[in-house]
């Protein structure tokens, strides 16, 4: 496991919340096709993207994730009818929240990956890893707090 340093060798740690029915199956599809992709994304399997609480995402960042992915069934394909729409709506809020926490919104990505889209899964992972690698390690909470204190002092 690499140390999180902002050198070219920085290997980001990314947490992916995947729904069981489409996106996790899409990830397996990439596996069956034996398409290589960067190993930086660690998957947490949930039954539905609708289960993803915004707190899961914030906690992942607090605990040191450099990026977070939420992957869901395509609109209209949700195994549970509409969980993916809830996930999408919450995602919009999360993106705004992250900015307030001084976390670059590009560290978070919501996308749709179907059970057949192994290739899309690989692309999403690769793009995400590249983006986060360029952004460098996520700011530690103490750094954020220091920034906030500085901001307050300046008021």
């Amino acid at each position: 496991m690499s140390d999180a340093t902002a050198t070219p060798t920085f290997e980001p740690r990314i947490v992916g919340f995947l729904c069981n029915w489409c996106s996790y199956a899409g990830a397996d599809k990439a596996g069956s096709a034996q398409t290589p992709y960067p190993p930086n994304v660690h998957v947490i399997r949930l039954m539905c993207s609708g289960r993803v609480e915004p707190e899961f995402i914030l906690t992942a960042f607090r605990e040191g994730a450099d990026g977070v992915l939420v992957l869901a069934c395509h609109p209209g394909d949700c195994h549970y009818k509409e969980g993916n729409y809830r996930a999408y709506a919450r995602s919009q809020m999360v993106e705004r929240l992250l900015t307030q926490f001084d976390i670059d919104a590009r560290r978070y990505r919501f996308d749709f990956v179907s059970a057949g889209e192994g290739e899309k899964f690989v692309n999403v992972i690769t793009e995400m890893v590249n983006t986060v690698r360029e952004l460098g390690p996520v700011g530690r909470l103490d750094a954020v707090m220091a920034g906030a204190a500085e901001h307050k002092a300046g008021l």
Binding site: R13, V15, I44, E53, F56, E63
Partner: peptide, 14 residues
Amino acid sequence: FTSEQVYAELRGIL
């Protein structure tokens, strides 16, 4: 899929 279980899994990863 309790929050406790998800957080435990998350902390295990990180």
